[in-house]
């Protein structure tokens, strides 16, 4: 589904990604862990098409297509989704309008007819239940005045509504208490299928107790320095990020 080959990127003059290689197949959940400043969020932003980052080398194929050639909205329509670490507040745009517009654009791209108001509401209610998202929040402006947990649940609600092939969760666990974390992880687990894939970016192992990955990658200094089964996350948690330096020097 996703093949990243030797991806390099920078912001202004600073090289951040220095050759990332990663392959994700349908049905898989990959986790990327790493210390602050290792390039985790940059990777997420570059994949989503953030204009602030410049790709200086490498290739990204998404379903066989050159992802880096596509605009952010085209990537979304092809089935890529980024759950933001810091979801943006948009005063004046209602969550409902936002969801409906996004869903319609994506459905139109896939040659599907627009939903009727009734069909849309039915789908919305169903997905709202998945993340225990209060109806009053649906009618408010996008993320405006939402608590941290409400914002993250809104990301997962959008994920559920848009039903992407590949979802990137960028530190979705940051700033969540355990109840909110369980709700968010529970929502993600219900959305997992053999058709879709997830790339879970996190600083802490805790989230991976709830969203169990198939593969864990450790990112440090703009490169993946180690990949392994889910136990790698536990090992990292136990030994701490200092352990990475040893890994780096020995490899």
């Amino acid at each position: 589904m996703l093949q990243i080959k030797d991806l390099q990127a920078r912001v202004e003059d600073k090289e951040i990604l220095k050759g990332i290689n990663l392959e994700i197949k349908p049905g898989e959940v990959h986790a990327i862990m790493g210390p602050n400043g290792s390039g985790k969020s940059t990777l997420a932003s570059v994949l989503a098409g953030h204009p602030g980052f410049e790709v200086t080398g490498g290739q990204v194929l998404f379903e066989g297509q050159d992802l880096l050639d596509l605009k952010p909205e085209e990537r979304a329509r092809e089935g890529l989704f980024l759950a933001f670490q810091y979801p943006v507040e948009i005063p004046g745009v209602s969550n409902m309008t936002f969801l409906k517009t996004a869903l319609e654009e994506i459905r139109a791209h896939n040659g599907l007819p627009a939903f009727s108001a009734k069909e849309f509401m039915k789908l919305l209610r169903e997905k709202q239940d998945l993340v225990e998202f209060n109806t009053s929040l649906v009618n408010r402006s996008v993320n405006e005045g939402f608590s941290g947990g409400e914002k993250k649940r809104n990301e997962i609600l959008q994920l559920a509504m848009l039903n992407p092939k590949l979802a990137i969760l960028d530190e979705t666990d940051s700033g969540l208490d355990i109840d909110a974390l369980r709700i968010v992880a529970g929502g993600v687990n219900k959305l997992r299928s053999s058709e879709n894939a997830f790339l879970v970016i996190t600083h802490y192992q805790r989230l991976l107790d709830y969203i169990v990955p198939d593969v864990v990658h450790i990112l440090s200094g703009g490169k993946i320095i180690k990949s392994g089964p889910k136990e790698l996350a536990l090992e990292l948690e136990e030994k701490g990020y200092d352990w990475l330096r040893e890994v780096e020097t020995t490899e």
């Binding site: 989503a48 098409g49 953030h50 204009p51 605009k71 952010p72 909205e73 990537r75 979304a76 329509r77 989704f81 980024l82 933001f84 979801p87 943006v88 507040e89 948009i90 936002f98 517009t101 996004a102 654009e105 994506i106 791209h109 959008q158 848009l162």
Partner: peptide
């Protein structure tokens, strides 16, 4: 906000 909207498929 522009980027956020665009990542949801909105032109």
């Amino acid at each position: 906000a522009m980027f956020y909207l665009r990542t949801r498929g909105i032109s």
